[in-house]
């Protein structure tokens, strides 16, 4: 019996020796890179010309905001602001091209809005921070059925940036939809202005990825925002925005 035990122990120990080196995690933490850490001077020197170039482009003041505009579900000042700008820009494009025959709505995904617009002076940099992506505005022609599906989807995800329509969500389902103040015509067609990112399948808006027609209006969302704020500024107006109950949630 003892022989067996010795054999057993030997096997275990031999295996133990042959096995990989034994690892133990002894500490794990996050170190904050704050002002207490001095810059690596050679790296900072390398960054400097890039920074000067960027700062020149970014620090130009384009307008002012009366308060901070933040973005959150289901409806927020910033998501309303951005979807209204898309709506406005698309409307102008359709009018110029004498194609404004269908009802227009707009969609801006809240996850695509990356930060808040601060109170006070607004610079180009702020707009890049809100909208870093190079997404362009596209106008899709969609059937009423797919528009209905779109708002049903938005109800399950608890809201988005929308313009030209109002909805009521109860228990994550769409309980009321008005487009331009009217009931939806599921046998008709609609225009939807949104980003090429969503139109191409981003964020799983599958009901809009096969439109009857799609047209890029040749304007980035970021450009539309910058131009809108500059226009306000030229008219001595500030950005004033809040929620207006276009998305209601009933629990």
């Amino acid at each position: 019996m003892n022989k067996h035990i010795i054999l057993l122990f030997s096997i275990i120990l031999l295996c133990g020796c042959k096995q990989n080196n034994e690892a133990t995690l002894v500490s794990g933490k996050l170190i904050t890179t704050d002002h207490l850490i001095a810059n690596d001077t050679s790296m900072q020197r390398y960054i400097q010309p890039y920074k000067v170039d960027i700062d020149k482009k970014m620090d130009r003041i384009i307008g002012h905001s009366t308060r901070e505009l933040t973005s959150y579900f289901p409806e927020s000042p910033l998501s309303n602001f951005m979807s209204d700008i898309i709506q406005d820009r698309a409307k102008k494009y359709l009018e110029q091209n004498k194609a404004d025959s269908l009802q227009l709505i707009s969609l801006m995904n809240i996850k695509g809005i990356r930060t808040a617009l601060p109170k006070g002076a607004i610079t180009i940099r702020h707009i890049f921070e809100i909208m870093p992506f190079e997404n362009e505005i596209v106008i899709l022609t969609l059937s009423g059925k797919n528009i209905q599906k779109l708002f049903e989807h938005i109800s399950t995800t608890n809201g988005e940036g929308i313009s030209g329509a109002t909805i009521t969500i109860s228990n994550n389902t769409l309980s009321k939809l008005r487009i331009g103040g009217k009931e939806i015509d599921t046998s008709g067609n609609y225009y939807l202005a949104t980003s090429d990112y969503l139109a191409n399948g981003g964020d799983f808006f599958t009901m809009i990825t096969s439109p009857l027609h799609s047209e890029s209006i040749g304007c980035k969302i970021r450009e539309a925002i910058i131009e809108h704020i500059e226009e306000l500024n030229q008219n001595q107006q500030k950005v004033v925005y809040s929620t207006d109950g276009r998305i209601k949630v009933i629990k």
């Binding site: 690892a23 133990t24 995690l25 002894v26 794990g28 933490k29 996050l30 170190i31």
Partner: peptide, 19 residues
């Protein structure tokens, strides 16, 4: 990049000590 993660791993150290 506001934080740098740091994890220290010891190989073949005394079990008790490392724990």
């Amino acid at each position: 990049g506001v934080k740098l993660g740091r994890i220290d791993i010891v190989f073949n150290g005394d079990k008790k000590e490392t724990e």
